[in-house]
């Protein structure tokens, strides 16, 4: 793979992560546990869709085939999507939404802090902007994890279930594939392996304060970076891409 191709795919799948998680959160509009939280989740969703746009515009420019960010979002099939499996998991109850937010935002904080140092100037600039947003997402998710974990018996149980249910999707976040490896010596991509310890420590701190247990590392799901997804992604895309697919000649 040429360096350009590798950067294209790298930017594209980072965009996919943001797009699919942003989509999931957008599903919650008018479904929050209280009006204030409804607005907070929408803000996070908007941050993510904004990040998607920046990454897709960059990916399209590298690809050089005259595509738009919308072509990339709305005209690819699920096996061409590279988002992590955890981003496409259903919202579930509020505890599942928060557990997903906690795992992803704390990973992204570590990841984008490193990407800020990338030798690729555009990726570095996007990382700097997005990391401010992620810091807030992480605080929001951590606070709610603590409230729910240390709230009522019911909320404690639900939060622990959510943590347990989603744990098997967290291993994938730290996997290096050939694209990560190819761009690493160039100083462009992030080395994911060293992030794991910091991530584990952070999760442990939050879960401990939340009076929750850190799950044992069992089998970890994998495959998304190769385009092998859970069944969820197909449904997300068939809904998201409906108008673009049904009226291919229309401009919106």
């Amino acid at each position: 793979m040429t360096k350009q191709e590798a950067i294209y795919k790298y930017a594209l799948r980072l965009g996919d992560d943001a797009l699919i998680l942003g989509h999931r959160l957008s599903e919650l509009c008018s479904r929050g546990p209280i009006l204030e939280e409804d607005l907070a989740l929408t803000n996070i969703s908007l941050d993510l869709i904004g990040r998607t746009q920046a990454l897709f515009i960059y990916a399209a420019s590298i690809e050089g085939k005259g595509k738009t960010e919308d072509d990339l979002a709305y005209r690819r099939s699920e096996n061409n999507y590279g988002n992590h499996l955890i981003t496409e998991q259903p919202n579930g109850d509020f505890a599942h939404t928060i557990a997903r937010q906690l795992f992803i935002s704390s990973f992204e904080y570590l990841f984008y802090s490193e990407l800020e140092k990338s030798k690729d100037e555009t990726l570095s600039a996007i990382a700097k902007k997005t990391n401010k947003e992620i810091k807030y997402h992480m605080q929001h998710a951590s606070d709610w994890t603590i409230r729910l974990g240390d709230g009522t018996n019911e909320s404690h149980k639900r939060m622990q279930n959510a943590i347990n249910d989603l744990w098997m999707f967290t291993g994938e976040l730290f996997e290096m594939d050939e694209i990560d490896a190819q761009l690493l010596p160039e100083g462009i991509s992030v080395d994911l392996i060293p992030l794991k310890t910091n991530w584990n420590n952070y999760i442990k701190t939050v879960l401990t304060e939340a009076t929750l247990k850190v799950p044992e590392d069992g089998y970890m799901q994998t495959g998304s970076r190769k385009g092998i997804h859970t069944e969820n992604l197909g449904h997300i895309l068939s809904e998201m891409q409906y108008l673009q697919r049904a009226y291919p000649d229309a401009k919106w």
Binding site: S26, L35, L46
Partner: peptide
Amino acid sequence: TRAPSLRAKQILLAKIQDEG
């Protein structure tokens, strides 16, 4: 969830958020 572009999706989300 069916907004036909990223721009349209952002606008719509921001607008509904305003209503809330």
